[in-house]
Design a protein around this nucleic acid. Structure first.
Length: 477
RNA sequence: GGCCCCAUAGUCUAGUGGUUAGGACGCCGCCCUCUCAAGGCGGUAGCGGGGGUUCAAGUCCCCCUGGGGCUACCA
């Protein structure tokens, strides 16, 4: 058997969604697991729907996920000679023929079949058209398509690496179009030609393509190509069990990136949809690559669940090296107006400390930036519920003033000494530490929840803590 | 409608004839604790239905039901 060569062949008609990304991931892993090549091909033969900016987005999403390709991207729109040559050969060998039926005529036939409750197939109108009739059609300005002559009997058998042997009755397959009237190849044709020319060894793609596989095999057979091995991976469904689409909220890689998800988390979550590593679920891209095999890919469509994805993102946020989490978080702090990269050393160090104390309380980078605003901004407001609970109590303002006074002369000033001082003060005033801590947190952060108060104070520093304490005492009145 | 694929908790999954049906998310409870998390511990919940085959079926076969896909001059 030759070298393993696989491809991911999206069409640039939208953003890369989680289903496509998972297929790309499986291809990437299979290539790495078998020391093969992972090839990227852009199937842009649909002129109306393909857009260059989608191609750009696709490449960006792939790079962001870390799914680096070894060859390509190839663009089908730039390989038209290949398809034309192949089609000409088929025409020459009478394995294909021109069809002059108009879309309207075909639609009429379909409609009639539907009304009669009969299955529709192309009736073969132009299968054996006389030269004269063809001339007439051309004279009338009709632009032909090219159809492949498909067998009228027998079976076409797909040997699928995941689904086993799948048998199709050739009588249910009609003479399908391989070249459109605009001269561009259809998917079933271009895909077959390219897979052969690029010497693809394994076609790993979503299950929605299984039903098209017999057509492609017939096509490849007519062209004399050796068939690739096929592996149809289960689909990823939206929570309502329907095919993924925009109305299901965030489904694209780009949306997840903007939503504050880490590529590590998204990759790890996606690989679990349809494949299982056996032991631990938390697994890195490198580990997946060494473990991956098609035998462990299951057959069942998976419903994706953002709750688990989000949990996993939180997990990666706090388990990844601090530098990595901070690096990923920085753009979000920039977008929130908290920081303006690039940072000076001291700023960066401070930023990392903040990320480190906050990161195990959030699940996304967006939440992380949001949970850190008060470290950078003074204009926060006090949480109303917190005000009721912690400020409205008799003596709260006085407590805050006492705390401020205490911190003013504390030497040295650090997390440990502040804590000791606070606990001492609560004893001295004969109040619970909570009675001191809760108003303090509200005063210095505006919030009732968050990191340990001494960590917050340590990060804020003496000056800002004191001024916030005094400001709050004044505010209480 | 025709053809094809699929079927273990709410979700993702392990399981390949003999298991107390395992793990993860979620949910609930407890511990920890200045709050919120994180973490630790415990609990909740499952083989779609019916027939076979077999000493024995989540595992094999058939039917039904349910879900999904294809059936385009989309990919």
């Amino acid at each position: 058997m030759g070298p393993v060569r696989v491809r991911f062949a999206p069409s640039p008609t939208g953003e890369l969604h989680i289903g496509g990304a998972r297929t790309a991931l499986f291809n990437y892993l299979f290539a790495r697991a078998n020391r093969g090549a992972f090839i990227l091909r852009i199937d842009d033969t649909d002129l109306d729907r393909s857009r260059p900016e989608y191609t750009e987005g696709l490449l960006n999403s792939m790079r962001w996920l870390g799914l680096d390709w070894d060859e390509g991207p190839y663009f089908q729109s730039q390989r038209l000679e290949e398809y034309n040559g192949a089609a000409a050969r088929l025409l020459e060998e009478k394995k294909a023929y021109h069809c002059y039926c108009t879309p309207e005529e075909l639609a009429g036939g379909r409609e009639a079949a539907r009304k009669a409750g009969k299955p529709y197939m192309y009736p073969g109108t132009c299968r054996d058209l006389s030269a004269e009739k063809a001339r007439e059609h051309r004279a009338a300005g009709r632009k032909p398509v090219v159809r492949l002559r498909t067998p009228d009997h027998g079976d076409t058998v797909v040997q699928d690496l995941i689904r086993g042997e799948v048998r199709f009755d050739n009588r249910t397959l009609d003479d399908f179009i391989i070249v459109k009237s605009n001269g561009l190849p259809t998917y079933n044709f271009a895909s077959v030609v390219d897979d052969a020319l690029l010497e693809i060894s394994h076609v790993i793609r979503a299950e929605e393509h299984l039903s098209n596989t017999p057509r492609q095999q017939i096509c490849a057979g007519a062209l004399g190509y050796t068939l690739p091995r096929y592996a149809h991976v289960p689909m990823i469904l939206a929570p309502d069990r329907s095919k993924l689409s925009k109305r299901h909220g965030a489904t694209s890689v780009e949306e997840f990136r903007e939503g504050g998800y880490l590529p590590e988390a998204l990759i790890n979550y996606m690989v679990l949809l349809g494949w299982s590593p056996g032991e631990a679920e938390i697994i890195s891209l490198d580990e997946m690559a060494s473990l991956f095999s098609l035998e462990r890919v299951n057959k069942t469509a998976a419903v994706y669940d953002t709750v688990k994805l989000t949990w996993m993102n939180g997990h990666y946020l706090r388990e990844l090296p601090l530098d990595r989490t901070a690096e990923a978080a920085l753009p979000f702090f920039g977008a929130a107006g908290l920081l303006e990269p690039p940072l000076e050393d001291a700023e960066l160090h401070h930023f990392k400390n903040i990320v480190d104390t906050v990161r195990d309380r959030v699940k996304t980078l967006v939440e992380l930036a949001d949970a850190c605003t008060y470290f950078y901004k003074d204009d926060y407001t006090y949480d109303p519920k917190g005000v009721e609970k912690h400020f409205r109590k008799e003596g709260s303002a006085q407590l805050l003033r006492r705390a401020a006074d205490l911190l003013r002369h504390l030497e040295p000033f650090n997390v440990e000494t502040v804590e000791t001082a606070y606990r001492g003060l609560s004893k001295e005033l004969d109040v619970s530490t909570g009675r001191l801590i809760h108003p303090t947190r509200l005063a210095v952060s505006g919030r009732t929840m968050g990191p340990g108060i001494f960590d917050i104070i340590g990060l804020l520093g003496r000056e800002r803590t004191i001024s916030r304490l005094e400001k709050a005492a004044l505010w209480i009145g």
